[in-house]
């Protein structure tokens, strides 16, 4: 097996009396697409900033491409592409200029940068916006430009912090498509997200993070298998009745989770559980049988849902 491109051992980051990252260990192999899944404030972004050789760790070991970021920040960063959570494109420059200026930071020759800039504008479907002002772009376009910028140095590892947060569904799908292509080309992707569908779409393997610690690790399918049932039956009895009805559902399914607006029944066969419930004389207002998702894994592991 090839040596990992990222190795973190017992990584910690302390901000005064808050441990933002509290002893995280993981490895990422070359070409892998690795996700950090967790709610806001779980320590995902802080971990990304340490992996990005920008934020200094408080303790633990960290190696990126075989180098320690404390001593080799610029060398490591020369091999990374970074898509931060908040866009930081230069709004005083135009679209293409943003790529030209950024390419220089890697010490690349102007001609190489100009060629790549044109390729990347095509990749990001922004060719027609080449001379536009950054502020005139939509949210999705800005995101794509930021990704194009992150690729100007042909990075070994692409770090994406909440790449699609705040985008509409169509823009998200365009972005996923672009990221999927990079993955196919063998770029190592590391991304944080609090969207289950995003993690399931893009990640080969992921860690579930909460309060700066790893709660679980595996492929999306493994995590679902280990921490949830095959199917989930969602039933609604009305916000004021859910808790009361839940008491009468004891014994139904493998496990029951009561949320404010609905009851989740975990079972290998959701339809069968629904029949049992109706036979017991209970008639939900709505019912839905679906496959288990990472959302259920998260709920099981932390007792909270991801998006509150």
């Amino acid at each position: 097996m090839p040596a990992p491109v990222i190795t973190a051992r017992d990584l910690r980051k302390q901000y005064e009396d808050v441990a933002a990252v509290d002893g995280i260990s993981f490895e990422v192999s070359p070409g892998e697409s690795f996700g950090l899944l967790g709610p806001n404030g779980a320590g995902k972004s802080t971990t990304m900033r340490m992996v990005g050789a920008v934020s200094t760790r408080t303790s633990g070991d960290l190696e990126i491409l075989g180098l320690d970021p404390n001593a080799h920040g610029p060398d490591i960063r020369s091999q990374l592409g970074v898509v931060p959570q908040a866009d930081n494109l230069d709004t005083e420059l135009r679209v293409r200029e943003n790529l030209l200026v950024y390419g220089r930071y890697f010490g690349l020759p102007r001609r190489t940068i100009a060629e790549r800039a044109d390729e990347l504008l095509a990749f990001a479907q922004l060719e027609e916006k080449s001379k536009a002002k950054v502020d005139a772009l939509s949210g999705g376009m800005k995101r794509r430009l930021t990704i194009a910028r992150a690729l100007i140095n042909d990075p070994r590892i692409l770090l994406l912090d909440e790449p699609t947060t705040g985008l509409d569904p169509q823009a998200r799908h365009i972005l996923w498509d672009r990221l999927f292509r990079l993955k196919e080309q063998g770029t190592t992707l590391v991304l944080t997200t609090h969207y289950m569908d995003e993690a399931e779409q893009l990640c080969d393997r992921l860690i579930v993070v909460d309060h700066g610690r790893i709660m679980a690790e595996g492929t999306p399918a493994e995590l679902i298998r280990a921490h949830s049932s095959r199917e989930v039956l969602e039933v609604r009895f009305g916000a004021d009745r859910n808790a009361e009805v839940a008491k009468r559902l004891e014994g139904v399914g493998d496990r029951i989770e009561v949320l404010p607006d609905r009851i989740l029944v975990y079972s290998a066969n959701g339809e069968a559980e629904l029949v049992r419930i109706t036979e017991a004389g209970l008639h939900p207002i709505t019912s839905l049988v679906r496959r288990s998702s990472l959302e259920d894994v998260f709920l099981r592991l932390t007792g909270r849902s991801l998006i509150e």
Binding site: H72, F106, G107
Partner: peptide, 22 residues
């Protein structure tokens, strides 16, 4: 060193030297 390590060390040289000018 590993090839990717060597590549990183080589690519970091110019920015270390000329970063301010960029």
């Amino acid at each position: 060193p590993r090839p990717e390590t060597a590549r990183a060390l080589a690519a970091g040289t110019r920015p270390r030297r000329f970063g301010a000018w960029y």
